[in-house]
Simulated scan of single mutants.
Amino acid sequence: MNFDMNKVWSRAIELVRDNFQLLVVIAGIFLLLPTLAAYLLIPDLQVFMDPAADPEVISAQLQDKLGPLLGIGIVAMIFQFAGYGAMIALMGHSRPTVGEALKSGLRVVPSTFGVLAIFLLAYVLAAIVISVPVGIIASLSGLASLAFLAVLVVLAMVIFLLARMSMSLPVLVLEQTLNPIKAVSRSFRLTGPKKWAIMLFWGVLFGAYMVVAVLLTSIFGLIAALAGDSTVAMLILGFTNGLLGMGIGMLVSGLAVAMHGQLAGPSEAELKSTFE
């Protein structure tokens, strides 16, 4: 198995560029519109996404809006999973039509929720294994800094799990399996030989995304605040975050397809076409 960061990036940009018009339509429907709808249906949504917000205010708001948040969140996730699946299918080796890509995206939504459940279970178990011993040692030794160290270790574990499971959705879509356990196992096998390089790759991209997201949120949050009218402000914030989600979604889908192509090698169909 081969993994070349530069080639993955170049191939992803090429895939996105070649399919840009269709990707914009899919990302607009499945990523932009749900984000915009969430901001309009829950006017206080920006409070939950503000890292500088008062935790007590967030807790109070969360209790009041837990039901709507869960409902809208689940619907938004269904749209997002379907959109990511469709974009991966569209850029895959089989070159499907838009209709076929959309069917592939919708087909893998339940399996994607299964992959998410596996990730959450692994995260909870890892957090317990890391946090409990560190918490005991910190309480006995009086070293509060150990708690901060535990947070960093858990964050590193999250990035590690995301890197190792990053091929799960391409496996579901491109290798046409609907079993989430098989998809996760296959992802671990594909990423295993180059796990540290892949972890670094996704970690750097995640860091760059966070910087861009914070900058855009700060700039357009100020513009939204100056707008005065709450509906206009929510439209500005929803549209900004939706456009950011579209761009990230198209890029991540392209990267997933390019990385899967490197790690899994050429498909049977590609090998046949080579010799025809």
Rank of each mutant, 00 (worst) to 15 (best):
I136H: 11
A122S: 08
Y84A: 10
G254A: 02
A60C: 06
M210W: 12
A256Y: 06
D44I: 09
N179V: 08
G238I: 00
L235M: 12
I159K: 01
L15R: 00
T217H: 04
A224V: 13
F220H: 08
G67S: 15
M91V: 02
I78A: 02
Q80R: 04
T231F: 04
W9Q: 15
G28H: 07
K65I: 00
P133M: 13
K7T: 14
I219Y: 14
F119H: 05
D64F: 15
S187T: 01
S218K: 12
M234L: 01
M210F: 03
L169T: 01
A101G: 04
S10R: 15
A89R: 01
L162Q: 09
V47S: 01
I74S: 11
V108Y: 04
I130Q: 06
E56Q: 13
V57A: 09
L69G: 14
N241E: 08
L70W: 00
E270H: 09
L226M: 12
V257I: 04
L125I: 15
M246D: 13
Q21L: 07
V98T: 10
A147V: 00
T240P: 07
F20S: 12
R17N: 05
L162N: 07
G247Q: 01
G238H: 08
I42N: 00
A183E: 05
G142A: 08
D229N: 02
S273E: 13
A86W: 01
T112H: 06
V154N: 05
S166H: 09
L146T: 03
E175I: 05
V211R: 03
L15K: 02
F119K: 07
V212I: 02
